[in-house]
Amino acid sequence: MTASLRLVDVSKTFVLHNQDGAVLRVLDRLSLEVEGGECVALVGPSGAGKSTVLRIACGNYAPDWGRVLVAAGGRATDIACAPPRAVLALRRQAIGHVSQFLRVIPRVPAIEVVAEAARLAGSSPDDAHARAGEMLDILRIPRRLWSLSPTTFSGGEQQRVNIARTMVVPFPILLLDEPTASLDAENRAVVVDLIRDACRRGAAVLGIFHDADVRAAVATREVACATLSRAA
């Protein structure tokens, strides 16, 4: 079975109990499918729910309704109702998520942040370290920064560490939230190459790409995320 991601009738509403019970309807019966080898771009205005879709796909947000079927490594899991330890196992081995902002543990050096992801996916410590170094080189993070914590890095450097940490593992499913947002042209080109390589090896990629050139370069098709958000 090749990798794929399928959302079926996914709805998501946020109820803000401590703000007068405000209700934000963000997704209403959204269905989409990403096959291995495809890169699907989510498009829609700010606040439409694009990041919400990616967060639901990795189990970070729970949908109110619908199924989120993750197929990888010969088995399919509905991440919307999988137990926490199954979600964590999928994140170690099957689903890579590049979030809009880097969240790391303070004081851990950049190289370790990247190596840990490889280790969690099953690499030996030496191998993980070597692959982390290669990935940081590919993403052009200067070696003098490798032993420093990314918390003080520039926006673009943080974003590249974020990408390195995901791309160091050949995840069958990739969720990319504006991976090139704060990158210059040269670094953007590097990331575009990484995404295309991932598709070529059969990964199912779902991403948000604000930059039209990047989107044109990587996306095989687009899915619209209509704006529903309104106070009910």
């Binding site: 803000l16 109990h17 970070n60 947000y61």
Partner: peptide, 18 residues
């Protein structure tokens, strides 16, 4: 109760949200 980042990023119960 649930996965740590799910509970903290998408809290459901009014008390968790608080």
């Amino acid at each position: 109760d649930g996965l740590t980042d799910r509970v903290l990023d998408d809290p459901r119960h009014p008390y968790t949200q608080l």
